[in-house]
């Protein structure tokens, strides 16, 4: 199978993730879309690793997973606290950071 197809799939996944981040209001869904974009990146790393025949891309994919796991921990904690204080998971409700 042509490895370029993996890149097409990754681009599609990334676009879906980005669109989700921009469009959806629910913090959980936005969070999931971010994960989707991270995984699209992982997919490109692995695909390029295969295409170029070295392991650098695969190693970086592991790094990305570790970072993503850490991010999930912090991110979910923030979302839980946000929900507790505002009784809503909408990112638009948390718009206090403006002048």
């Amino acid at each position: 199978m042509n490895p370029v197809n993996y890149l097409y799939l990754a681009a599609l996944l990334f676009t879906i993730g980005a669109a989700g981040v921009l469009i959806r209001r629910n913090a959980i869904v936005v969070f999931m879309c971010i994960e989707l974009m991270l995984n699209a990146c992982n997919l490109t790393f692995v695909a390029f690793s295969r295409m170029h025949g070295n392991l650098d891309g695969q190693i970086i994919a592991f790094f990305t997973m570790v970072v993503a796991a850490a991010e999930v921990v912090v991110g979910l904690a923030i979302i839980v606290l946000l929900f507790r204080s505002r009784h809503s998971a909408s990112v638009d409700d948390a718009s206090l950071m403006k002048l």
Binding site: V21, S95, K98, L99
Partner: peptide
């Protein structure tokens, strides 16, 4: 310029993208 800072995370995301 201040008006650009509207506090909506999604607006910041758009400008970042």
């Amino acid at each position: 310029l201040r008006k650009l800072q509207n506090g909506y995370a999604r607006t910041y995301a758009v400008s970042m993208f």
